[in-house]
């Protein structure tokens, strides 16, 4: 779908692949406080900002795809903690919400692993929504490589 006018180097491929692994690890490790993940992702984006378009595309795709996951996880954590504090009964809605969030998290992990492998192969593997969004964000008319 998207094409670069150059062939990424081995170092770019490695950086691009690592972007998925790092964001995935951040989200997994920071699960009790999902909002921290957002800051970690933003920090990671700033590190990647000056990188080449190939790396930047994958880094952005990795970050943007985490935003809905972070929002879902935050909602699940806040809802659960709220129930524990208010000592109210766990509802069917909460259980189904948590299961939905788990399904989306697992899907996200699977996508991240595939994307990391594709990036390692030097491919511009694109997710639905987040791929075009990241592509749009890296558009820079002054950069002839994009």
């Amino acid at each position: 779908m998207f094409e670069l006018s150059y062939i990424p180097t081995e170092s770019e491929k490695e950086n691009a692949s690592n972007a998925y692994i790092i964001t995935l690890m951040t989200v997994t490790l920071g699960l009790p406080f999902p909002i921290l993940n957002l800051f970690a992702c933003i920090g990671f984006y700033f590190l990647m900002r000056k990188k080449t378009p190939f790396t930047k595309f994958h880094a952005l795709q990795a970050i943007t795809s985490q935003v809905p996951i972070i929002l879902m996880n935050s909602a699940a954590v806040i809802w659960t903690i709220g129930i524990l504090f208010r000592k109210t009964a766990i509802s069917n809605e909460l259980i189904s919400f948590v299961i939905t969030v788990v399904i989306f998290n697992v899907t996200d992990i699977a996508y991240n692993i595939v994307a990391a492998m594709k990036a390692r192969d030097g491919l511009l593997y694109s997710y639905a929504l987040f791929g075009p969004l990241s592509w749009m964000l890296i558009q820079d008319k002054s950069n002839p490589h994009v």
Binding site: S96, T100, F104, A128, L129
Partner: peptide
């Protein structure tokens, strides 16, 4: 992108709604 975003939202809330029909409690 708008279409994909709609799909994402619908699939999330749709999954949640369908799962909430299962009596876990």
């Amino acid at each position: 992108m708008v279409f994909d975003f709609t799909i994402l939202i619908v699939s999330f809330f749709g999954t949640w709604y369908l799962l909430s029909q299962i009596p876990f409690i």
